[in-house]
């Protein structure tokens, strides 16, 4: 438990890789990202229920890649001079103008679709690596205290969910004792009611237990902090709204205003957290290892941003090259293998 790296660090590391993937359509670079994410995920994952997430997301990514290519074949898009196949074009009604069904399939377009699909699959792999590496329960423990009530509800949900599955099983068995074979839509009703009744009774017992154990002993905020929190939160939200509008208006001010709006909103979350008077048992701490893990992801992202263009050229088609700087940056992102605990055999 104490040996594991902070889940937030894994997410930031994965975000670094995702930044690289979001800027690249070069299949060599994307392949490298998938390899790095996969290698780290497989080496550093702990023995948790989520450990297999990477495999799941990898397969999902492959499916997305396939669908993207299929889209291109059927719905066309970017074209080039090299026609591989000329599919018959299906005529569409007038209101559907702009949508093309069928038509010529070009090598350039196919490569473009492949690279885009690969980009999407790579992003999914980054998310999958983060899911496999970061312990979701500990991530929940790191939510800001202002979200305490909500996070307790989620903790309760995760505790109760397996119990409900067990209780559904026993209700189903009990139904058989009354000579019923429960199937179809009726089953929903017959199983759901006892399970729900049981669940609600359980929720009352749980609420009593939480109450007796000090849930909700709030310090209450002094008026000044309360006003400040309200000011920060609402100000931040207004800033974000303005930023969103500016962004959609096409002005260049959008992004900076959004960022400026985010700061007071986050600050409001922080001052609001003081309303909850409670402490954390064995809180997850940020140490050197976390900094190194995040740093390695950051290096990959920075080299990709600063380095050469990572776009796959499609017109004319050329073999993709391997730009040196981003490749080195991605190799740095392998560092967690050396830093983090490995899975015990």
């Amino acid at each position: 438990m104490s040996g594991a790296v902070h889940p937030g660090a894994w997410w930031l590391w994965a975000l670094g890789l995702a930044v690289v993937a979001s800027r690249a359509t070069n299949p060599v670079v994307l392949g490298l990202v998938v390899a790095v994410a996969g290698f780290v995920a497989v080496t550093c994952r702990q023995d948790t229920p989520w450990a297999d997430s990477y495999d799941m997301f990898f397969k999902f990514g492959l499916a997305v890649l396939g669908i993207r290519v299929l889209f291109h074949v059927l719905l066309g898009g970017v074209d080039g001079p090299t026609v591989l196949l000329d599919l018959p074009e299906v005529p569409l009604p007038d209101w559907a103008r702009g949508i093309r069904l069928g038509g010529p399939l070009t090598a350039e377009g196919l490569v473009f679709a492949l690279c885009q699909g690969l980009q999407l699959a790579t992003l999914l792999c980054c998310v999958g690596a983060a899911n496999a590496l970061a312990n979701a329960k500990r991530l929940l423990r790191s939510l800001p205290a202002a979200l305490y009530e909500v996070s307790v509800a989620v903790v309760v949900a995760m505790t109760v969910a397996p119990q409900l599955v067990a209780s559904a099983r026993s209700v189903r068995r009990a139904r058989a004792l009354r000579g019923d074979v429960v199937r179809g839509v009726r089953a929903v009703k017959l199983l759901l009611v006892p399970v729900l009744e049981g669940a609600f009774e359980r929720s009352l017992v749980l609420a009593a237990a939480m109450d007796s154990r000090g849930y909700g002993r709030h310090a209450g905020l002094p008026t000044r902090t309360r006003v400040l929190t309200g000011f920060l939160v609402l100000g931040g939200l207004v800033g974000l709204c303005v930023g969103a509008y500016a962004l959609l208006d096409g002005g260049s001010a959008g992004v900076p205003v959004l960022v400026v709006g985010a700061v007071p909103a986050a600050a409001g979350l922080w001052t609001g957290s003081r309303r909850v008077r409670r402490s954390r048992y064995r809180p997850d701490t940020w140490g050197t290892r976390e900094a190194l893990v995040v740093g390695s992801g950051l290096i990959a992202a920075v080299t990709a941003v600063l380095g050469p263009d990572l776009v796959m050229p499609t017109v004319p088609l050329t073999a993709p090259d391997l730009p040196l700087l981003p490749a080195l940056g991605l190799l740095c992102a392998l560092a967690p293998v050396l830093i983090a605990d490995r899975k015990k055999p």
């Binding site: 202002a146 979200l147 305490y148 009530e149 909500v150 307790v152 509800a153 989620v154 903790v155 309760v156 949900a157 995760m158 505790t159 109760v160 969910a161 119990q163 409900l164 399970v195 729900l196 669940a199 609600f200 359980r202 929720s203 009352l204 749980l206 609420a207 009593a208 939480m210 109450d211 849930y215 909700g216 609001g272 309303r275």
Partner: peptide, 20 residues
């Protein structure tokens, strides 16, 4: 929303429904 007060019963009910 939660700073407006969510008592133990509401949280427990939320948890149980979410679990379901």
């Amino acid at each position: 929303i939660s700073s407006g007060g969510m008592d133990a019963k509401a949280v427990a009910m939320l948890g149980v429904l979410s679990a379901l």
